[in-house]
Nucleic acid binder design. Structure first.
Lengths: 206, 206, 206, 206
DNA sequence: CATGAATGAGAGTTCATTCAT
DNA sequence: GATGAATGAACTCTCATTCAT
């Protein structure tokens, strides 16, 4: 592991990631310039490059931090969950923390998604994040339905989450955290109760 | 005389929009520079500015072109639809044209969504596009369920569409057009069949 | 002479000069673009270049028009003047027409003065204008004082006029036409009454 | 340490201001491009923007430098002045330093005056400069005449100074520094001796 | 370790001018 | 005569990145 790293390096990196994270949420990826990060961290922008050779590395670190926060929150909520269905709700809720499901934050994330195409590293990272979410959901759902259905619903939830975030960043007066959660919960309820209808696709023209 | 004057302007504008559109799909919004557009159109970059005073104007034109293509496709499919349910499918299908629901195209659109936050004009435009989609869906759904439920399902479909596109841009081997459509159709079927489970909604399909 | 020029050419040139003149007064020299002139004249901007090969030529024409208008006004006022002193006042007044001694117009002229340095043609033109003004003033003043003193006062008046215009363009709530004229008239009275004191320069340090 | 940090910034800023100042005097405001300034300072044009975020800021700095030089000269001359009248002469002389009252310099200043209209910041700056000059003059003149008359004469001097500089920039073989000063001194003498005639405006036509 | 000085590539935009039609 | 299509030079400004100290 990297436990042996100089502690000051660890500290600096963490400070910079924190500063970058806040800058990212506030200004989006484009507005997250090295200069602004340095300023926010109270350090020179030169040092930002010293610890993160490329800007990409810092962005990845920021994304890892964000997903770590969410996964921590997920874990906490899972521990408090009192039923299989409650475990699904726990995962959902942790993806819509009320202080994060805001216009600015949503926009910031969309700007990050936009960068994925040009940065293979981001792509790998995001794939891992996506897989973990679906994996968590599948695990929770398996106690409520068939494995196959669990996978389908998990994917549906993930898509719905994406849609809600994308919309949030587009609309000034978008849905609140609780509204978003309510919609997803209803979606889950529907899906869990309708497994048998799966595959009934209406005829399409063309 | 006058015809040829306006004609060439029309032609050039169209050529430039086409060139911009292709550049956009290939490089995303950030990579859609005036220079590249001009190069692709076989013109100087000066002329791009001659026809589109601001880059934003060109971007808007590109978006309008894209949505126009979709709306045309929607209209065509709607004419061929043979049942109320088929009308919903028509709208869905036109949002997943198989030649457009690709990795690059999806990425390009996400990069456009990311720019909405910084360009009020894009925001207005996108709001109009969003409203039209939901309006179309609501109209079609009203023949299948209550007005209130129709609105809810319409919103759900729109979110699901967003989620699918966002995912498409993130994943190299993402869902194909037909897979995406199948998922949405199943979603619609579920939603139409589950109105009574919706918490406070009283209306039943009739 | 050039009397034989096609009349349509004469007309067009005049229309363009008029349009350029108005554009100049409104937007200054920098804002007097070929495109704006053409638009104002209701013609294409291509034709502007056809009649005035270089922009400089058009600027010169504009300046000539402006000085012609002033000289006409001067002539008119001189005819109405009833005394030698009145002739001086006539010349002064024609340099501060109330509809021209405004912030925008003054700024426009200053922007023209700024261009003189880079355009020898403007320099020649302006020298002629300057000479004519001083010549007019000298002639009028000679009936009131010695030739030598007349030349001195004429130069002083010219400088004072320049100063007033330059100031006008600098100050949002600058002097009105009548205020400016009053100041100059007082200046002239002082000068006419104080010829004997000329040359009494106070001791300077260094 | 900290000294050297700020020191180099101070040095570079000063170097750039100097380079900009010289470029300004030589090419006027329009010709004072970031590229030329950088070239003259022996640096990349990027660094110019590093130290002066906006070009306007650099222009302001240049103007402040110039007015600072003048005000220093004014102070020096005022200390050496041996009479109230001499104080007025001191102020006048510092506005016509012989190495600055040249064609190019005058042209540069006129180009700056032309920019005032489009840059509110320049306008504010220039207003301050104007006010200071008049204030200095008023103070000096109050020991020689009434307060009211002092204000009038101060304004007259300021206008005359403007006129002389504007003319200097227009005329290749314009007045020398000493000639300009002599004219102004005569003007002041006249004005000081003729307070009682103030307001005697001759009848104007129209 | 840390700074911030310095570079240079690249973006959008403006506009006089040329020229085919 | 007249149009406006087309060019290309020039400008300001932004930023990731490099590097001497």
């Amino acid at each position: 592991m990297h436990i042996s790293k100089t502690s000051i390096e660890q500290i600096r990196r963490r400070e910079l990631i924190d500063a970058a994270y806040l800058t990212f949420l506030e200004h989006g990826l484009k507005g997250m310039t090295m200069a602004r990060i340095g300023e926010r961290a109270g350090m020179s922008h030169g040092i930002v490059n010293y610890y993160f050779t490329r800007k990409d590395a810092l962005v990845s670190a920021v994304v890892r931090k964000a997903t770590f926060l969410i996964s921590q929150d997920t874990a906490r909520r899972l521990r408090q969950a009192k039923s299989p269905r409650g475990r699904v709700s726990a995962i959902i809720a942790s993806n819509f923390a009320s202080d994060l499901f805001t216009l600015d934050t949503a926009r910031a994330w969309v700007s990050y998604y936009a960068a994925i195409g040009q940065h293979p590293e981001f792509e790998r990272l995001q794939n891992a994040v996506d897989r973990r979410l679906e994996s968590n959901l599948r695990h929770a759902l398996r106690q409520l339905t068939s494995d196959r259905r669990a996978a389908e619903i998990a994917e549906g939830i993930a898509l719905y989450i994406d849609g809600l975030w994308l919309r949030r960043g587009r609309t000034k007066d978008g849905a609140s955290s609780s509204t978003a959660i309510a919609k997803l919960e209803a979606f889950v309820d529907d899906q869990l109760a309708s497994g048998h209808r799966k595959g009934t696709v209406a005829g399409l023209p063309g």
